[in-house]
Design a protein around this nucleic acid. Structure first.
Lengths: 202, 202
DNA sequence: CCGGAACTGCAAGCCACTGTCAGTTGACTG
DNA sequence: CAGTCAACTGACAGTGGCTTGCAGTTCCGG
């Protein structure tokens, strides 16, 4: 069933990855020059020397050209592993400390920031991110239910996961809004502290 | 600047409202019969006996035909008023107790439920709802900043408002998922309790 | 009752996205 | 190291959501 390519990459896979990186970079260049809305898929395809259909096959939608991240599945798997041994807040802190900092070395942080500005400011792209967040919330909920024996469809677990993820997203937004002054790791830790101790407003 | 029609309705306004209600109902009928994706704006326009352009002028996008709610601005204003006197959690409880239950009398709850199923299950509509939630989050943040003197752009306030809203949305989702068994008011109260006392997981 | 402003319908266009159908290329088998 | 098969790719022709500009109509305030 879940036989998700645990094999060594293979030429085909590597070629595809390389093409996707290339297309993403070309697209970001064009977006920077003319603005997200004024760049058509056709233009990206022409500039990247692939066919428009290939772009749709790779990314599915225009937003995903920006949202796609080859390290996402890696982080997800790491997060899932950590969840087996600790609570989700601790797990998230761990993943950010270990995996993310490592990934940020070879994929230079500049690309991440370029993508970030569109994710935050372009409504269509933001919508795509929210969709990903919804999927992530569902997965997280099921995983937590498995580890704690709680009802995966219960109100409590739903609210907890939703709050956790929204805190994470808000941390990223803050990171962007403050021009990446502090490390993402520090900010996420702060955000998690806030929701951990409860919303005792006033 | 913010001179938002505090005048008595006027014929024009009433006509528009009536047309929008009519279009929304017709659209829901068609969606129920053929599915959201298989119904074109043109078909809705024909069935409702208006021109497609009018639909766009009324609703802006296809999703908004479902998302539009004439009571939304009323609830927002009520929420804003309550915020002046109490903390946001108490304010939200209040609004739901008073305003929502009142609104549900004359707009029969059946229409709300019909809309809800598309809001929850149709990705495009969900995206639109998330966009509205983002706007609401910003407004809420600014209001809370005004009332408490905290930094509206600070991490803490950002996380608090985001968690609050995501809890509210999750409550609505739960309400739908459990087939509207309990009252929305009860569920939202439960959700607010969860995030109030903090996410002391494990 | 009248001047301007807002609303409506008509028409034309843009482009994201989909489906199909050859042609090609990498992956596995004997 | 063929040869076969599955997966990928490109070209092409739609579909339809959404926008824009223009003309005619309807309503509101004075």
């Amino acid at each position: 069933m879940t036989e998700t390519t645990t094999r060594p990459p293979g030429l085909r896979e590597r070629k595809k990855l390389k093409a996707m990186r290339h297309i993403q970079n070309v697209a970001l260049d064009l977006f920077d020059r003319d603005g997200y809305a004024h760049v058509t898929i056709e233009r990206i395809a022409a500039e990247a020397e692939v066919s428009p259909s290939s772009i749709y096959r790779y990314f599915g939608t225009k937003e995903m050209i920006i949202l796609w991240d080859e390290y996402d599945p890696i982080m997800l798997r790491a997060f899932d592993d950590k969840l087996a041994a600790m609570n989700p807040i601790a797990a998230l802190r761990e993943v950010l400390t270990n995996v993310v900092t490592a990934a940020m070395f070879d994929q230079d942080e500049r690309t991440i920031r370029r993508r970030m500005s569109y994710i935050m400011e372009e409504p269509a792209v933001r919508a795509g991110m929210n969709r990903q967040a919804d999927d992530l919330a569902l997965e997280l909920r099921l995983t937590m239910a498995r580890h704690t024996g709680r009802d995966p469809e219960g109100l409590e677990l739903r609210v907890v996961t939703a709050a956790l993820i929204s805190a994470f997203l808000e941390a990223i937004a803050y990171w962007h809004a403050t021009d990446y002054r502090d490390s993402l790791h520090t900010i996420v830790n702060g955000a998690l502290d806030v929701i951990s101790r409860g919303l005792l407003v006033e």
